[in-house]
């Protein structure tokens, strides 16, 4: 694997909430003790159910929210300690594409304004007569007609808006692109187009992706390294996309993907048991309540994420082979 562009060490984020003015404080560890390297020029996929902390992890990686503990290092710089001016500088090199293209564009901004905003914010605004050309270049790049420059977001389809979102993220020529379920709210036919576009940019610009998804099938197709999260923690890291998952939870996720070929369709065994409340995690393995392999050890002691002999890392007392 190539040198990491982003290194997360013991990264955690706790959200505190309370009920009413005098209610007791409750804290929830959305992301807990995540240590992960994102290799340069590769695609790292993060999968997990809704609420497992994958979107929070994406925002921590870009310091869109502050970490409660641990650190994020981008190309050798600890971004958690950067002053606002330095943070603004480094943001040019790390960008994000959002899940919901419908709300990721300001309804009052024309597409041209939207694509020029990165330059305006970074103080890199091209002179007036070059702006149209800059916008045209970006639109060409993501395969949109130049005529949409003067349109407003409500005149565009979801797929078109997502292309604008990608163009905006690429405007400053970043090295890292965090993709937070970029296809989750699009039609299936559009999803494939967006993934193709992202693959082309990865190859053309040598981009590094952090790809957040709940679709393990898509992640196995698109990613070089797969991270499986459960209730804020990494349970398994697979360093090959075709590696057989060994954690019972990863297995269950893979088994729940829908095979298009009926002959290959398995009997889906739904996961039994309840997801524990994120406000009150059990002392042992968080997955123990739903795990078919769970033993007394699992309920008493939390497994740590350790290097696996078969490659990758896994946090399980009873890994499957």
């Amino acid at each position: 694997m190539s040198a990491p562009l982003v290194s997360m060490r013991g990264l955690g984020r706790t959200f505190v909430s309370r009920k009413g003015l005098f209610g007791a404080h409750r804290s929830m560890r959305a992301v807990d003790d995540v240590t992960l390297d994102i290799p340069a020029g590769k695609v790292t996929g993060v999968v997990g159910e809704s609420g497992c902390g994958k979107s929070t992890l994406a925002r921590l990686a870009l310091r869109l929210i502050e970490a409660s503990s641990g650190s994020v290092t981008f190309d050798g710089t600890d971004i958690g300690s950067l002053e606002p001016a330095a943070m603004r500088q480094i943001r040019r090199r790390m960008q994000m594409v959002f899940q919901d293209p419908y709300s990721s564009l300001d309804p009052r901004y024309s597409i041209a304004d939207c694509l020029l905003e990165p330059f305006a914010i970074q103080g890199l605004m091209p002179p007036a007569r070059q702006r149209a050309a800059q916008v045209d270049d970006l639109l060409d790049m993501v395969g949109l007609a130049r005529s949409v420059a003067s349109s407003f977001p409500h005149q565009l389809s979801g797929g078109q808006k997502q292309r604008v979102g990608i163009a905006r993220a690429l405007a400053l020529k970043p090295q890292l692109l965090v993709l937070d379920e970029p296809t989750a709210s699009l039609d299936v036919s559009i999803q494939a187009q967006i993934i193709e576009l992202l693959e082309r940019f990865r190859d053309d610009f040598g981009l590094t992706y952090l790809f957040i998804s709940h679709d393990l099938g898509l992640v196995r197709y698109f990613c070089d390294q797969i991270v499986v999260m459960y209730l804020g923690r990494i349970v398994e890291v697979m360093d090959r996309p075709d590696a057989r998952p060994r954690h019972p939870y990863s297995r269950a996720l893979l088994n729940s993907t829908f095979a298009p070929d009926p002959a290959k369709r398995r009997v889906v065994t739904p996961m039994a048991g309840e997801i524990p409340s994120p406000f009150a995690l059990p002392p042992g393995c968080a997955f123990a309540a739903r795990c078919p392999q769970a033993s007394a050890l699992c309920k008493a002691e939390r497994p740590t994420l350790a290097e696996s002999t078969a490659g990758g890392r896994i946090a399980c007392h009873h890994p499957q082979d």
């Binding site: 870009l62 869109l64 606002p84 943070m87 603004r88 500088q89 943001r91 040019r92 960008q95 994000m96 959002f98 899940q99 919901d100 709300s103 990721s104 564009l105 300001d106 309804p107 009052r108 905003e117 990165p118 914010i121 970074q122 979102g165 905006r168 400053l172």
Partner: peptide
């Protein structure tokens, strides 16, 4: 709204977010 987060991820400060996005809307 996501566009506010998008603007922050582009490096915008509070002034830009308030005066260019929130107040006009």
């Amino acid at each position: 709204e996501t566009y506010v987060e998008a603007t922050i991820s582009l490096g915008a400060g509070s002034g830009h977010v308030l005066f260019r996005h929130l107040l006009p809307n």
